[in-house]
Nucleic acid binder design. Structure first.
Lengths: 216, 216
DNA sequence: GTCTATACGGCGATAGAC
DNA sequence: GTCTATCGCCGTATAGAC
């Protein structure tokens, strides 16, 4: 009726879809290059080439190197979560906690470097700090949920502020991840679990209650 | 006898001393600039100017920007330590521990950024990792001394490996320092002390021994 | 020993062809 | 929408004057 000739009615990708796909590929490439070279050390040329495009394509999708970096750092946060519920149904809550954080660290080895890079960027460019604060709070909130569920099941009374415990657990984890890159032999894979167990043990003791020690 | 005329016998600074002084000033300036701009983002021009010298003076004292950075990172580690003994004579060992680490973090706000910068550099340039490993081990060893002294006095039996505890304490501290830059309101100054106390409490509980709970 | 001047390359960003 | 070509700037590092 409305389209004579051999023009395909449904191209595989519309122009908008093609552009969105290019954007995604550029973001993926930028993730790798920024992680490997750092924000200042990375060049837009290497990012574009690594994605299989030209510099012009990059600038047609992002206003500047800085905006590409910022978009990347706020886009990536959406990628995980929601495996929390399933992991909690397992046995030892501490094991579940360890597994959760370990998984997020191992999923992409570059992610730790990228996080350090963004921390430095935000420290030096305070206008970007809000985004990082939001990410941290999201992480801590997720841990609060897990930890309060775990302590409830475990018998630790709820008079210990879960937010503080979550902050401590996250700090310990992040510190260990960085130390492991420096001295792998002295940071065993089980040390984090050990630390969490000790911390929770101290929690129960401080609460003046002798609950069941839980499985171990 | 050996020097006629008006040549000063003892110039305030010999040439070697003057050069050493210039080196020190350049290293100090480099510390500030690298911390503020990052390794890749810092320029040798800004470093030289910040020290009150020219680019030529910088290259007369250091072979390259990279060598300046590496020398800086291995030179700075010598600057503290040796206040450990005095601090241990105080009352609560945990308070002493907290004070020790807090002091090293507050002495120079730039130091935390510089550490992150060096961590990233070493991750990306493995030939520099050895220096970082040595620094970390030094830190952990110092903590082992303090912690074993504290636990002995406190009644925790020595069957818990002090190295693991020291690693955990340091990880928790470093994680909290970084989190505090992101969200100061949720990382109080006392949280680290609280965490250490909980951790030690769990240690005592895990040792199957009910020692005196210590002061608090 | 330090400074000034400069060589040389690489970078971010833009313009115009297709 | 993407590519090629290029502009303009700033970077590291060097050479030679003083």
């Amino acid at each position: 009726m409305n389209d004579p000739g051999d023009v395909p009615r449904q191209p595989r990708l519309t122009r908008a879809e093609a552009k969105a796909r290019t954007r995604e590929q550029l973001l993926d490439a930028a993730t790798r290059v920024f992680a490997r070279k750092g924000y200042a050390g990375a060049s837009v040329e290497e990012i574009a080439e690594s994605a299989g495009y030209s510099i012009g394509a990059l600038y047609s999708n992002f206003a500047s190197k800085e905006q590409l970096f910022l978009e990347l750092m706020s886009a990536r946060r959406e990628r995980r979560v929601n495996e929390v519920a399933s992991i909690l149904h397992a046995g030892d809550p501490v094991d579940a906690l360890v597994a959760l954080l370990d998984r997020s660290a191992e999923r992409d080895p570059d992610l730790v470097a990228l996080r350090a890079e963004f921390w430095l960027y935000a420290v030096r460019n305070p206008e970007a700090m809000d985004a990082l604060t939001a990410q941290l709070r999201r992480q801590v909130d997720a841990l609060i949920g897990i930890i309060s569920a775990a302590t409830e099941r475990w018998g630790t009374p709820p008079d210990v502020p879960a937010a503080e415990v979550a902050t401590l657990v996250l700090a310990m984890f992040q510190g260990l991840v960085r130390q492991r890159r420096i001295d792998p032999d002295r940071v065993s894979g089980e040390l984090f679990g050990q630390g969490v167990r000790w911390l929770f043990g101290g929690l129960r003791a401080a609460s003046g209650q002798q609950a069941s020690p839980g499985p171990e």
